[in-house]
Design a protein around this nucleic acid. Structure first.
Length: 112
DNA sequence: AGAATGACTAGTT
DNA sequence: CAACTAGCCATTC
């Protein structure tokens, strides 16, 4: 691979996601200044598969749907992890997603 | 260099 | 309201 600068940022943000909180790819992308590269965030998550410190299960799409659950080891591992954190997941979608939404820009507006 | 892909998003049909 | 379209951008072949 090459410079994981962008990936590093994504990982850094993902690691900062507090327990029982979730965020969206677009939020991270926007926070990193690449709001139009939400796909790349997802791509970074794919690469984060090797990173055990990346709670990718706390990162979902804008609708709160566990779009990437199939990338986890098990088919319901992602949901299990979220439920284990006090979240409610129904039909691969987080219940009250907005309620558990965590905006990195609000928590770390100066982080870059 | 050109085409294909993807864990996205917003807008339109 | 579900499905489709288009835009966006980094990575891979």
């Amino acid at each position: 691979m090459n410079n994981a600068n962008f990936f590093e940022k994504v990982y850094a943000v993902a690691k900062q996601i507090p327990y029982g909180k979730v965020t969206s790819y677009g939020a991270i992308a926007k926070y990193l200044g690449v709001s139009r590269s939400a796909r790349m965030v997802g791509w970074a998550m794919n690469a984060s598969h090797a990173m055990q410190d990346i709670p990718a299960h706390r990162v979902v799409n804008r609708k709160g749907m566990l779009t990437g659950k199939f990338h986890f080891d098990g088919t319901n591992l992602m949901q299990q992890l979220l439920e284990s954190e006090g979240l409610e997941v129904v039909d691969n979608q987080i219940v009250d997603f907005e309620k558990h939404f965590w905006d990195p820009q609000v928590e770390n507006p100066e982080f870059k």
